[in-house]
Every structure is written in structure tokens, then in C-alpha cells.
């Protein structure tokens, strides 16, 4: 349940875990945390009941999101920015078998593909904005496998454009954390073994700082 101490709300996939860890370590109270993996958040993962967010996700963490839409807290979200999955699907199931390069599909087709493949993502941001929430979406850490890296980034650009049109703000630390090709710089990789996807808590801290600045949230040091 939200309390007067909460400074913001957090929701998302595994990329939100680091952000939550950093906030905890700094003693910044917040509502929520990581809700589920990216696949689940692509699907229809919640309902809106009496103007509030009601997750359809199993697990004890689900109870931690009561009041997400009603608490009046700025929401920081990583929901939907796992664009590597749809990029992978298109790469293996469409482009590669037909020998096409990634320019073969228009932005409009890909935007529709995002709507169709990620109905939960699109529904979440629309619902949050409609309920009057200030929503901040976080770009992914920009760690994607090379064969569909460019496509994943293009999809991310299209998704972020759709969100901006809805009234969502973007938290963007890409200029400080990526190389010339747009890839996450190795110094921001997570130290976890066999993890080719996530960023370190340094990256998460940069995201959190940028969000707190952008949302105008003051915190006691």
C-alpha cells in the first residue's frame, strides 16, 4: 500500500530490479518493484479496477502494486522495453528465411507489430496516462545480440515515439552509457556471470538519478 513516505512508484521487468536495489540502498522509499519478466509484461498482465492497477501476475510481489494508479506518485517503468524479443522473432521468422534486410518493413508495420505483440505494454501505458499518472519509461540498457541489434533499437525508437504521443516521458541515459554504435559500454555491464542482457547497478543509479531530476523529486541525501 502507498504511504506518505513513498517518493515514486516502480514497475517493470528484470531491468527494474537494479533500479529498485539502488533506491533501497539509498533509503528512498518507493512503491512496487520488478513485477515479472518481459514476456509476461508483453501480454495482458493487469486489469484496471476502480481506477487502480490490479496485476494478473502470480507471486507475492503482486501485492506490492496496490495503489500504483491511485497514489499520485510518479511511475518509473521498464515495461515493454525488451524489444530484443520481438526483434528476434522477426529476425528468425521473417527477415532471415526470406533473405531480407531490416529495411523491408515500414515503421507503420513495425508500430502495428508492437501493438499486436505487446498488447499488455501498450495497454499499461495508455491506462496509466488515462488514470492521470505521470509516467516515466526507461530505455533498455542497449544490450542486444548483434544480429538483431539494429532492429531492436529501431523498435525501441518506435515504441518510445508511441509512448511520447500518449504523454509518457522517457528517461534516457544512452548518451552517457553507450558507444558510437549505440551499444552499452562494457563498464556498465552487470557483473553477474553468463548474463548478456542486464546492466550494472551503476547504470541503474544513473537512471534513477535522471528520473528523480526529470520528475522533480527531491530526496534527502
Amino acid at each position: 500500500m502507498p504511504t506518505d513516505d513513498h517518493r515514486f512508484a516502480l514497475i517493470g521487468d528484470s531491468n527494474s530490479a537494479g533500479i529498485g536495489r539502488v533506491a533501497r540502498s539509498r533509503g528512498i522509499p518507493f512503491l512496487g518493484g520488478p513485477l515479472s519478466n518481459g514476456i509476461t509484461l508483453d501480454g495482458d498482465f493487469f486489469d484496471v479496477e476502480d481506477g487502480d492497477f490490479l496485476p494478473r501476475v502470480d507471486g507475492p510481489q503482486a501485492a506490492g502494486f496496490t495503489g500504483l494508479f491511485k497514489a499520485g506518485l510518479p511511475i518509473l517503468s521498464t515495461v515493454g522495453f525488451n524489444t530484443q524479443r520481438i526483434a528476434q522473432e522477426l529476425h528468425h521468422g521473417f527477415y532471415r528465411p526470406r533473405g531480407l534486410d531490416h529495411s523491408a518493413l515500414s515503421d507503420n508495420v513495425l508500430r502495428q507489430a508492437i501493438e499486436d505483440y505487446k498488447p499488455g505494454t501498450v495497454k499499461f501505458y495508455r491506462a496509466a496516462v488515462e488514470e492521470g499518472c505521470d509516467v516515466y519509461a526507461v530505455y533498455s540498457p542497449q544490450r542486444f545480440p548483434e544480429p538483431w541489434m539494429a532492429l531492436a533499437l529501431r523498435l525501441e525508437r518506435l515504441l518510445s515515439g508511441m509512448l511520447v504521443e500518449m504523454g509518457v516521458s522517457l528517461v534516457d541515459v544512452r548518451p552517457e552509457t553507450t558507444d558510437e554504435a549505440g551499444r552499452l559500454r562494457p563498464e556498465f555491464f552487470t557483473e553477474r556471470e553468463n548474463d548478456q542482457t542486464h546492466a550494472s547497478d551503476v547504470w541503474s543509479a544513473m537512471v534513477l538519478d535522471r528520473f528523480l531530476d526529470d520528475a522533480g523529486i527531491g530526496v534527502m541525501a
Binding site: S14, G33, N37, G38, Q84, R85, N194, D195, T197
Partner: peptide, 20 residues
């Protein structure tokens, strides 16, 4: 899904479990 993709999913699940 390829083995690589499945491994990615496991990593993501682990990250969330560890958080909680």
C-alpha cells in the same frame, strides 16, 4: 526459442527472484 533465448529468460527470472 533457441537455447540462447531460454537462457536469457532464466537470467531475467533470476534477477527478479534475487531482488525479492
Amino acid at each position: 526459442p533457441t537455447e540462447e533465448e531460454t537462457a536469457d529468460d532464466v537470467v531475467c527470472e533470476d534477477e527478479i527472484l534475487e531482488y525479492y
